[in-house]
Computed example of a mutant assay.
Amino acid sequence: MRLGIDLGGSKIEIIALADDGNERLRRRIATPQGDYRATLAAIGRLVENTENELGQRGSVGLAIPGAESLATGLIKNANSTCLIGQPLRQDLQTLLQREIRLANDANCFALSEAIDGSGRGANIVFGVILGTGVGGGIVVHGRVLTGANAIAGEWGHNPLPPADGDNGPAPDCYCGHRGCVEAWLSGPAMARDHLINSGEALNAIEIEARANAGDAACSATLARYEARLGRALAGIINILDPDVIVLGGGLSKMQRLYRNLPAACGPHVFSDVFYNKILPPTHGDSSGVRGAAWLWN
């Protein structure tokens, strides 16, 4: 039995998968806010209660909103700031008395979709997170690619390639740089772009709904977004050339992306053909927790 845990900013979710990938149990609880020790205890209780209910001990994989430093073993780059600088893997191994496998939540998303989702059977899968932030994960032959600095797939902090006629100066990113992919392509970035260009404050869901109803300003915002996303993904394709790109996060629910992105990517891809598939996730919001379980694959 494989146990996967998705440690999010607002909730902690656990899933139990049988050896064939079928779900046996799923539970979620609220994440203790800003309290590292309480978070450890909450994870421990989830594992204990799950194993007691199923009468079986399982392997444990954990998806986190950050990364583990390969130099120190401490958590870095986490938007749940109470995790930063903490020996999370070591503490959980002590608490649960077993080896723990741990990965960034975007890597877990990509792994889930590569194992038994939209990227099943593909040699190379790039998993994209388009939501409050922008992230990514790379899976090659069923294995997460971590990289020398444990940042493989972090395309959200590459600069967005420029284009003639694009609107506005490069926006600031929380990482301290300007013009990062995340600063252009997150949900809040879409809302900011619409406000700048139309003077109307709408979120991404409202922009899509208005565009579908024929609103010209909202349609123009989505067209700019798709052009930028196409350029950003083309850079990934030129380097990695994945068989499948799976979109996740809140913005991945926009069905027009799957119709329009191949044409937006194509002119920027160094090839006479465009065989890369851009697909929605099979497991949706469950891919992170499922991927954590599949870290023991």
Rank of each mutant, 00 (worst) to 15 (best):
R2G: 10
S10R: 10
S10K: 09
K11S: 13
A16C: 03
D19R: 12
D19E: 15
D20F: 01
R27N: 13
R28M: 10
Y36Q: 11
T39I: 09
A41S: 12
G44A: 13
R45N: 13
N49L: 06
T50M: 03
T50L: 02
G58C: 14
G61V: 07
L62R: 05
P65K: 15
T72C: 13
T72A: 14
K76T: 12
N79G: 03
S80Y: 15
I84K: 11
I84A: 12
Q86C: 11
P87F: 03
R89H: 09
R89N: 09
Q90D: 14
R98E: 11
E99D: 15
A103V: 02
A103G: 07
N104A: 08
C108K: 09
F109Y: 15
A110T: 07
A110W: 12
E113A: 05
G117F: 05
S118D: 14
N123L: 06
F126N: 11
F126L: 10
G127F: 07
V128E: 10
G131L: 03
G131Q: 09
G131H: 05
V134M: 04
G137E: 13
G147H: 07
A148R: 15
A148M: 05
N149I: 07
G156N: 00
G156I: 00
G156P: 00
H157V: 02
N158L: 06
P161T: 03
A163P: 03
P169E: 15
D172V: 00
C175D: 05
G176F: 07
G176K: 01
R178H: 15
E182A: 00
A183M: 09
A183E: 11
G187C: 00
A189V: 00
M190N: 09
D193T: 00
H194S: 04
H194N: 08
L195N: 01
I196V: 11
N197I: 00
E200Y: 12
A204Y: 04
A204F: 02
A211K: 06
A213M: 13
A217V: 05
A220Q: 10
A223V: 06
Y225Q: 06
A227I: 00
L229I: 01
G230W: 08
G230K: 04
G235W: 02
N238S: 00
I239Y: 03
D241F: 02
P242H: 05
D243N: 13
D243R: 01
V244H: 03
V246T: 06
G249S: 02
L251R: 00
R256D: 14
R256V: 01
L261H: 08
A263K: 13
P267H: 11
V269E: 08
F270M: 14
S271G: 07
D272E: 14
V273M: 06
Y275L: 14
Y275V: 12
N276M: 07
I278L: 11
I278M: 05
S287A: 15
S287W: 04
V289R: 05
V289K: 05
V289A: 12
R290L: 09
G291W: 08
W294S: 11
W294Y: 14
N297D: 13
